[in-house]
C-alpha cells in the first residue's frame, strides 16, 4: 500500500498515512493502531475484518473523523483533518459521515422520527425540512408506520434501520458501520446489509463496514484484514466487483 502508483483515475476520499493510535491505560500505553496506510475511494464498499481488539473500531473512528491519530496523517477529501480542532471535526463529520453502531445508540426518550432528525439540528436545518426528510428516510427503510414509536417499542432490526436512517440524515458521503449486524439475527442482519448495498449501488455512497462475519463481509467489494493494529492482507471480492480494478491501492 505505501507503493501508491496513482494508476487510478478515481477520487480518493479518505487517505491514511502511517496512522498510529496509542491509548493510555493508566500508565501503560496500548498501541491500537501501529501504522496504517490506506486509501478509500469515493463509492467504494469496504469491509474491515479482524479479531476482537485488533483495532477495527479505532480505525473506523479515525476514518470517520470521530477521533484523531496519535501520529500520522488523515486526509479527508484532500483536507488534513488530523490537525482539525474538536469543533471543526464535529462540524465536518456531521456533514460528511454517518455512523451506524452495533448497539444502535438511539435516544430512548425520542421517537424514531426525532432520532432521525437529530443530526440535522446540529446542521441548522429548519424543523419542517428536518421532519420531512426524516419521514422520507424512515419510509424508504420500511418504517413509515413506526415514525412515532420509541426505540423500546421497536424490534432490534427496526431500531437498526432507524439508526441507519439517522446516519443518512445529512446525506453524508461516507457511511461507517461498526458491526451493524452484531446484535441482530442473521435474517435481520441480511436485511440491513441489503439496505446498505442498495445505498451503495444506487447512490454510490462510500461504505465501510466493520464485521466479524464473513457472510456480512461478502457484501463488500473489498476486505481489509487487520491484526494487532496493522493491515495484514487485503482481498478483492471479484464477484462483487462493480469496477474492474482494485481502486483502493491503485493496483490493476
Amino acid at each position: 500500500m505505501p507503493n501508491d502508483t496513482h494508476a487510478s483515475h478515481d477520487e480518493v476520499i479518505i487517505r491514511l498515512d502511517n496512522v498510529k493510535k496509542t491509548y493510555m491505560l493508566g500508565k501503560i500505553p496500548v498501541q491500537a493502531l501501529r501504522g496504517i496506510t490506506m486509501k478509500v475511494h469515493r463509492g467504494e464498499f469496504i469491509a474491515i475484518m479482524g479479531p476482537s481488539g485488533s483495532g477495527k473500531s479505532t480505525l473506523m473512528n479515525i476514518l470517520g473523523a470521530l477521533d484523531v491519530p496519535t501520529s500520522g496523517k488523515v486526509w479527508f477529501e484532500g483536507k488534513d483533518i488530523s490537525k482539525f480542532s474538536e469543533s471543526e471535526l464535529a462540524r465536518f463529520r456531521g456533514k460528511k459521515v454517518g455512523f451506524v453502531f452495533q448497539q444502535f445508540n438511539l435516544f430512548p426518550v425520542m421517537s424514531a422520527l426525532e432520532n432521525v432528525a437529530l443530526p440535522m439540528i446540529f446542521q441548522d436545518v429548519p424543523e419542517k425540512q428536518r421532519l420531512a426528510r426524516a419521514k422520507q428516510l424512515l419510509t424508504t427503510l420500511g418504517l413509515g408506520k413506526r415514525l412515532h414509536h420509541k426505540p423500546s417499542e421497536l424490534s432490534g432490526g427496526e431500531q437498526q434501520r432507524v439508526a441507519m436512517a439517522r446516519a443518512f440524515a445529512n446525506n453524508p458521503d461516507v457511511i461507517l458501520a461498526d458491526e451493524p449486524t452484531g446484535n441482530l439475527d442473521s435474517k435481520t442482519g441480511k436485511q440491513i446489509m441489503t439496505f446498505l448495498k442498495n445505498l451503495h449501488m444506487e447512490e454510490h455512497k462510500t461504505i465501510i463496514v466493520v464485521t466479524h462475519d464473513p457472510i456480512i463481509a461478502g457484501y463488500a467489494e473489498t476486505i481489509v484484514n487487520i491484526r494487532d493494529g496493522q493491515i495484514v492482507h487485503d482481498h478483492i471480492l471479484a464477484r462483487k466487483h462493480l469496477w474492474p480494478k482494485n481502486r483502493r491501492t491503485g493496483e490493476q
Binding site: L66, E86, S87, A90, R91, R93, G94, K95, F99, N105, F107, L118, P119, F122, Q123, R166, A169, N170
Partner: peptide, 16 residues
C-alpha cells in the same frame, strides 16, 4: 455520557 457521545458522533460541537 453515551448520549453525549452519540450527539458528538452525529455532529454536535462542544459548544452545542
Amino acid at each position: 455520557t453515551r448520549q453525549i457521545g452519540i450527539m458528538k458522533a452525529v455532529g454536535a460541537t462542544n459548544s452545542d
